Simulated scan of single mutants.
Amino acid sequence: MSMPAHTVAVLTGDLIGSTASGETATDEAMASLHKTTVEIAKWRGVSPPLRFFDRYRGDGWQILLTHPAYALRATLVLAATLASTAELPRTRIGIGIGPADIPDNKDFAASTGAAFIASGHALDTLPRARVFAIEGEHVTSLHRAILALAEELSGRWTPEQAEATALYLSPRQPTLAAIAERLGISTQAVSYRIRGAGARALRDAATWWEQDAEDRAP
Rank of each mutant, 00 (worst) to 15 (best):
D101K: 04
P218E: 10
R130E: 07
K42N: 14
A145C: 05
L33S: 03
G45V: 13
T85V: 13
H67V: 08
V38E: 15
E28M: 11
A150T: 02
R193P: 06
A69E: 06
P171T: 06
S154E: 11
G155Y: 07
Q173M: 02
A197S: 09
I63H: 03
Y70M: 14
L176E: 13
E181F: 02
M30L: 15
D101Q: 09
E163P: 01
L65M: 03
T207Q: 10
R130K: 13
A114F: 08
M3C: 12
L65I: 04
G98A: 08
R90P: 01
S191F: 07
R57H: 07
A122Y: 04
H34S: 14
A109Q: 08
E210Q: 10
R55K: 12
T112S: 12
R172M: 12
G196Y: 03
Q188G: 10
A199V: 06
A148N: 08
R195H: 13
I179H: 03
L153Y: 12
I63C: 15
T26F: 01
D215V: 09
L15A: 03
A201V: 01
A118I: 07
I40P: 10
Q62R: 06
T7Y: 10
A74D: 04
S186P: 07
I146S: 09
M30Q: 11
P48S: 13
D212A: 11
E181G: 11
R156S: 12
A201E: 14
S2N: 10
W61G: 03
K35F: 08
D204L: 12
A118C: 07
L78V: 08
G58V: 00
A9E: 04
I93L: 05
R182T: 14
E214H: 09
L11W: 06
H138T: 11
H34Q: 11
